[in-house]
């Protein structure tokens, strides 16, 4: 696989070089993520390697500090609400977009995807200016609305991708066998695209849970999310409790990632 059998010596050399270079790049991609993990278990308040002595003191710190706990609770509630809203809206839109009769498909798609590419600060400032006068800043509802807008493109993309592999003859078969359209959707279509919808929901959850900038602009002390708490922490004085928070966020990301991988793998079986 690595090398074709007809490769010349020069080619072998360059190919080997490219392979090693790529592995180095992959190490560059992965290693920084895991630097924070040992530091969060260090007994010392300094970021030095090797870690002299391990302890759980920064985790005790984290879980005994009300601000961090509030942050986790706020992030979870916001992310769950965002997920519900974004998955519902995004799935419906994707179902519509899958129809060959959808009018102005390209333009609508371009609009639906735009929250992914518009600079986050612009979204944050715009929401701050717009939500302020109608009383939605410093409320959870405001944050959920803004996060939902940011999360829907992920749902639209994943569900659209799943629908593109869905055999529309399945729906036709169900209809021809006498199932009314709504039953056809619930009994035949939905079970076959559910993995795509759950993937989209996972993406939506992660998008909201990790989001900092909009939350910085829209939340007051009461709605402070975990990432906002972390961000202000790093700005003031970076300390090992932040490493514990980052490790917890990392663990959550890996958990969601594994869930998604298992989900998509099962689908291809």
């Amino acid at each position: 696989m690595w090398l074709p059998s007809y490769a010349t010596p020069t080619e072998r050399f360059f190919r080997t070089l490219v392979v090693f270079f790529s592995f180095a790049v992959l190490v560059f991609l992965i290693a920084p993520l895991f630097v924070i993990v040992p530091l969060s278990f260090s007994a010392d308040p300094f970021f030095t390697f090797p870690v002299p002595k391990y302890s759980l003191r920064w985790y005790y710190d984290f879980f005994s500090n009300e601000r961090w706990i509030t942050g986790i609770i706020n992030s979870t509630i916001t992310a769950v609400l965002t997920t519900i809203l974004a998955t519902t809206l995004g799935t419906m839109a994707a179902l519509g977009l899958a129809s060959p009769h959808f009018p102005w498909r390209r333009a609508v798609m371009a609009i639906l995807i735009s929250p992914m590419i518009i600079p986050i600060v612009i979204v944050a400032v715009g929401s701050y200016l717009f939500y302020g006068p109608i009383g939605l800043t410093n409320t959870r509802l405001g944050l959920v609305l803004a996060h939902t807008a940011l999360a829907t493109p992920f749902v639209v993309i994943t569900v659209t991708a799943t629908l593109s592999t869905y055999d529309t003859n399945l729906s036709r078969a169900a209809l021809s066998l006498g199932a009314p359209p709504l039953n056809t959707f619930l009994v035949v279509t939905l079970p076959n695209i559910i993995t795509g919808i759950i993937s989209g929901a996972i993406f939506a959850f992660a998008t909201s849970f990790d989001e900092v900038v909009v939350a910085l602009f829209l939340t007051g002390a009461e709605q402070r999310t975990l990432p906002v708490q972390m961000f202000s922490g790093i700005r003031d004085q970076i300390n090992p409790t932040i490493m514990a928070a980052a490790t917890i966020l990392l663990a959550l990301s890996i958990g969601l990632f594994v869930a998604l991988t298992l989900l998509t793998r099962k689908k291809t079986d």
Partner: peptide, 13 residues
């Protein structure tokens, strides 16, 4: 998949 903030934190360290 990892939060942008976590990755940035890693680089700060």
């Amino acid at each position: 998949w990892t939060s942008l903030l976590v990755r940035t934190t890693a680089w700060v360290v």
